[in-house]
Design a protein around this nucleic acid. Structure first.
Lengths: 322, 322
DNA sequence: GTGAGTGCAAATGCTTTGCAATGGA
DNA sequence: TCCATTGCAAAGCATTTGCACTCAC
């Protein structure tokens, strides 16, 4: 947990206290700090035990009461994993997610699924409910328990980092699809000017892929074993697939012949689609590092569109110079 | 609750008792009967109160214990609506569903959403969990509570009947889309033989629609106000839309010219798609009246395919006679 | 100094368990 | 007869409340 965030959340808590005429105390601080410094799905008893390590005099009741406040101001979120205990997880700057719960070891994996959010919105509207929150919980037996292996705790990582990691992976997934598309197209395009344009696209996407991989490494380096944490963002690859134009539409007979203009138009179209998609994808999430990844990816795709447009202008001005 | 079902469930319970070396008793019978004769999401106290009306001597503990057994043998299903109480709902021959819970009045609407089931399967597979069950719960404030209106209980109907009702409605929705498609096509088709074929299709679909409406009335007549119960099956109309061929594919210029053969082929294709879709749709559900509706709809569409094929043979044999 | 916070103990509410009596198979 | 079942009372358990004392503002 970076200090910056701990500070942000503490600020939030204090302003909540101020606004509600409540007082800040040593115990509240201690409980907040303990909560923020622990990842996972902790029950009151867990947090109480941790707090007691630092100060034996604190009572459980205070932990209960403070966690209620933390929930009220959006720092914590109450969850249930089916064992009758109320558990708490970080909420501030953490995307809304769901759980896969092992009914044997009671460990839980978190995942985000925008499709679920969409369905939830559709349904609640259909029934004229004013939405508050929703939860999707899948219960099953995890691999470790099924194979009677030793189990350790899941989810020891900062959710926001894992989300950022997966956001970059999603962007990379998009870029890889684009690469495959452009390479395939360059291979088959029988118009040499168009081929050249597309090959330049390949290089640009490759460069972008390198950047994204660096970004990924940077994120993963922030925390030990972050790369091993299970997938958090459950995105639908079909949605990315749909952004890629169908090559068959450009075939005439079995051959593909896209001149420079048509190639730029195609690339422009693909970039525009990707930019729009990632921009609206970002809208689904609360303020997080991951959201920022989507926004900056959308912006880069947008910038690439501008570049395409410039090239198009150049081409129209002096067709031989591109 | 029809007698037939009460009997089936009682049989199931007795065989569960037999297989586990347990004994049948007057109290268990009483609790089972009370449970089966009440629709809704009842907590132990609710059922206990109802049982007490019939016999003051029965204890709560027995209700707790019997409900555990009923859950174990698949007659009841335990649910939580967020108020800390364990509630029970019918499970035998009831499709797996989810809930929209009002956080004010604690009433819950049930709904079935095959899309959710699909996502659940995808995700649990991705994380290598062995599935047990899943729950999707949406919390919000219902219309009544938002407008500070008086509230009565939801869900006073037999879930299986509501499911059957919605299954028929879904089939009707499909037929209406087909009708619209055929009418539009008949209108625009400039080939008179083809037009005639399509007009016959319109008549056949109309007849089928009448049948389905009769079926719907029959289901709705089984229970008072069944037609007013909220939508239970949340199907995706896009999935139906996708089954309908795009007319634009048959346009040449702005005109449509489909001869008899092409018209039969088109109708055959549409019927086949509908039959396949509803057959696989039925597979998603446990044995219920609604599932039977889907299967019989798929069969009827299949039969229609056979009819189409016969016509095609006739046409090929004597082109003028169709 | 005022009023919220704290921590103890006690209460609450749902659910389970222990146990002696009961009653099915 | 045997052993599951029943219903009472009692225990468990997570959480909340009452209250006197403490401490932040």
């Amino acid at each position: 947990m970076p200090m910056r965030k701990l500070k942000e959340e503490t600020e939030l808590f204090y302003s909540y206290l101020r606004q509600n005429g409540l007082k800040k105390t040593y115990q509240k601080d201690l409980i907040l700090e303990t909560f923020l410094n622990t990842e996972g799905h902790l029950c009151v008893e867990d947090i109480y035990a941790l707090v007691k390590k630092r100060d034996k005099k604190v009572g459980v009741v205070t932990v209960f009461r403070t966690l209620k406040s933390l929930t009220a101001c959006g720092i914590a979120r109450e969850i249930t994993l089916g064992d009758g205990l109320t558990r708490f997880e970080h909420s501030y700057h953490h995307p809304h997610h769901h759980h896969i719960v092992c009914t044997e070891c009671h460990r839980a994996i978190e995942f985000v699924c925008p499709e679920l959010e969409r369905i939830q919105n559709d349904i609640i509207q259909k029934y004229h409910f004013h939405p508050i929150h929703h939860r999707f919980q899948t219960y099953g037996i995890c691999e470790d328990c099924r194979d009677h292996r030793a189990v350790t705790d899941f989810q020891k990582h900062d959710t926001e980092r894992i989300f950022a990691r997966d956001a970059v992976k999603m962007a990379l997934c998009m870029e890889n699809r684009c690469l495959e598309f452009y390479r395939n197209l360059a291979d088959r395009n029988q118009d040499s000017a168009g081929k050249e344009i597309i090959e330049r696209m390949v290089q640009e996407v490759e460069a972008h892929t390198v950047d994204l991989n660096l970004k990924l490494e940077e994120i993963v380096a922030q925390e030990k074993d972050l790369d091993c944490a299970p997938i958090f963002l459950h995105f639908d690859p079909c949605e990315l697939e749909e952004l890629i134009p169908e090559l068959s539409r450009y075939e005439s007979g079995d051959a593909i012949r896209l001149d420079a203009k048509a190639s730029i138009e195609l690339a422009l179209h693909l970039n525009r689609a990707a930019a729009d998609f990632f921009k609206s994808y970002a809208d689904r999430f609360a303020e997080t590092q991951g959201k920022q990844v989507f926004i900056s990816f959308a912006n880069q795709e947008g910038n690439h569109c501008d570049l395409m447009r410039q090239r198009m202008e150049q081409l129209l001005a002096s067709p031989s110079a591109v």
